[in-house]
Design a protein around this nucleic acid. Structure first.
Length: 134
DNA sequence: GCCAACGTTGGC
DNA sequence: GCCAACGTTGGC
């Protein structure tokens, strides 16, 4: 079981949209590092859902329900998608500000690789952030 | 809305 | 293979 974090601008597709839809295809990734992470996702993996730009906070946890397949929104076969569904709301959202100010999370990729849109999260960090949200 | 950081592209 | 130019992301 692995843990991940994906970013989305709530203006284009928010956590609420995902809950309304029940599931979604995570398309639009056009970055190799992010794509490589999509490739590694397995059914059942848990994924933090982060709102970038507006909110700048982790708002929920999604679950991988379909592993990588070619992105149908492009002819370019380099890119893949996965399907996710909402798994859990975070009781208390965890803001970027909080993540940044927490010395335990100084190596969290959200801070150190701020432009990466799909990143892996260590089990320790995942559990720690879940704790922060309770 | 600006701009820094970073990734990609293409000319040489 | 280098690097300048350009495009995109995301915090502020």
């Amino acid at each position: 079981m692995n843990y991940w974090l994906v970013k989305s601008e709530p203006e284009s597709y928010s956590w609420e949209d995902l809950k309304k839809d029940g599931r979604t295809m995570w398309n639009g990734v056009r970055n190799y590092q992010a794509r490589n992470n999509l490739n590694k996702m397995k059914i059942g993996d848990l994924v933090f859902y982060y709102h970038s730009n507006t909110g700048k906070e982790i708002v929920g946890i999604a679950k991988v329900i379909k592993e990588q397949y070619p992105d149908p929104t492009t002819e370019d076969n380099r890119w893949v998608v996965v399907d996710i569904e909402p798994y859990k709301d975070l009781k208390n959202k965890v803001s970027l500000e909080k993540v940044k100010s927490d010395p335990k999370l100084e190596n969290f990729k959200l801070v150190t690789h701020s432009r990466l849109s799909v990143m892996d999260v260590s089990k320790d960090d995942f559990q720690y952030i879940v704790q922060l949200s309770e």
